[in-house]
Design a protein around this nucleic acid. Structure first.
Length: 423
RNA sequence: GCGAUCAUAGCUCAGUUGGUUAGAGCGCCGGUUUGUGGUACCGGAGGUCGCGGGUUCGAACCCCGUUGAUCGCCCCA
């Protein structure tokens, strides 16, 4: 490679081959499943005014200042490449009059951008599928959304992940719990890790999922959200869990599963690979496959009326890794046509065009050494292999059925021969 | 933002304590052979050893920097 060739941007990926096929499989399956649940498709801008994300994220300065791709456009306005779908969809809900469709179920997918250190399953331009229910405050919305996520994962063939579920309660519950956690950890502050001492000020809920051994002795006895839940919040969570049971969605309670941002209320969840499972091994430390929650407080931060909403997103790259080679290969062609003599090129082009119009997947082998085209065609492992050649001065062809299970092809080919008899 | 490991042909990798024209397998291209066929054999193209400096008579190998990848930490909307 010449040093004049520009390199790809750090953290971006050129997806090709099995990974690209697995990626497409994830997106196609998502499209199919979201129709089953009657989610409407939306397409969103890749960039927004910076305030769309900054205001929705609130005071989490690290995320806003260090991890967003922001720039000033020619008019001097600060714009940001979307780091998430939710804020943009919420903005559209308010500015485009989508309130009239509430409760609105929408689904989308596409690229997102975060300025982070790349790791396995973590890129600066990455891709997510996303589903949101806006304007629905009842627990049934959470249940339907989670059932869709569960079915999606199953239909992708991912069976070794489990729904980890928690509730953060309503605003009052959440605040009371947060205050109790701060009191509890402040009393033992000196014995906590440096990171957790800092988290105590910035993001105390996060201490609960600390991996540092110095913090772990204090985690078990930390105040639990359940003790602070209002009656309504308890009833809401109970309705979600019983709904999941009725829908046949397996779940486990994860009391330390939290969300850092203030706008989250009630349900919070992540689908996480089971310990020791193939999926866990495939993902490394980036373990969450799909995550989301209820964000009843978001619309107000964007200047809208209080609007309940719940949603989730999942990284397509990570799902594609779990799908792996099971669905990650472009299947062999139904028909391979080898042109062993260039005099037969027109016949071959006519044949493959006909077959493709009949919705048959065909690969044409007509380049390179004429004598090796047959070998290449055979290596493609088609159901049917056709070769066109010239023998003793006359056109000749052969047809091999390598997998005679496929009767439709025989029918289509017979039709072709009837219509355009080969010499 | 922090730490560790790594970077040699299109791919997977060798390359001995620093020592002449840097190798293999696969793939690719061409040819011979095989009387209808994923064969075997022969040949070929393709690398200033990520990039830039330094040490040395001499660097793929040692040192510094840089870029990127990988694995953790932090963060995770």
């Amino acid at each position: 490679m010449s040093k004049k060739t520009p390199q790809a941007i750090r953290g971006t990926q050129d997806i090709f081959g099995p990974e690209a096929e697995a990626f497409a499989f994830v997106v196609e399956t998502f499209e199919r499943v979201r129709r089953l649940y009657r989610f409407r498709r939306v397409e969103m801008p890749v960039f927004e005014k910076t305030e769309v994300f900054a205001r929705s994220l609130g005071e989490t300065t690290d995320v806003v200042s260090k991890e967003m791709y922001s720039f000033d456009d020619r008019g001097g306005e600060s714009l940001t490449l979307r780091p998430e779908f939710t804020a943009g969809i919420a903005r559209a809900f308010l500015t485009d009059g989508w309130q009239q469709y509430a409760p609105l179920k929408v689904a989308t997918h596409g690229p997102l951008f975060r300025y982070e250190r790349p790791q396995k399953g973590r890129y600066r331009q990455f891709h997510q599928i996303d589903a949101e229910v806006i304007g629905a405050g009842e627990p049934q919305a959470d249940v339907e959304l989670l059932a869709m996520a569960d079915q999606l994962l199953k239909e992708l063939g991912i069976n070794d992940v489990t729904l980890h579920l928690n509730t953060l309660g309503d605003a009052e519950s959440r605040e009371a719990w947060r205050a109790a956690l701060i009191d509890y950890f402040r009393a033992v502050k000196d014995q906590l890790s440096e990171e957790s001492q800092e988290r105590l000020e910035k993001n105390p809920l996060r201490i609960l999922d600390s991996k540092d051994p110095r913090d772990r002795p204090f985690l078990a006895d930390a105040p639990k959200i359940d003790a602070f839940l209002s009656e309504e919040a308890s009833a809401f969570f109970a309705a979600v869990t019983s709904g999941l049971d009725a829908a046949g969605v397996k779940w486990v309670r994860a009391e330390s599963l939290v969300r850092g941002l203030d706008y989250y209320r009630h349900t919070a969840f992540e689908f996480i690979p089971d310990e020791g499972s193939p999926s866990a091994a495939a993902l490394g430390s980036q373990s969450t496959v799909l995550g989301g929650g209820r964000y009843d407080g978001l619309m107000e931060s964007l200047g809208g009326a209080p609007t309940p909403a719940v949603g989730w997103a999942a990284g397509i790259e990570r799902l594609a890794m779990l799908v792996g080679d099971r669905f990650g290969l472009l299947p062999p062609p139904e028909v391979a046509v080898a042109v062993e003599n260039d005099a037969r090129m027109s016949d071959a082009v006519g044949l493959v065009s006909f077959l493709r119009r009949e919705q048959i997947e065909v690969e044409l082998f007509a380049a390179g050494s004429a004598r090796k085209r047959f070998d290449k065609a055979k290596k493609a492992n088609p159901v049917i292999l056709i070769s066109l050649d010239v023998r003793d001065g006359k056109a000749s062809q052969s047809l091999q059925v390598l997998d005679n299970a496929y009767e439709r092809l025989g029918y289509v080919l017979a039709t072709y021969e009837q219509r355009y008899p080969l010499p």
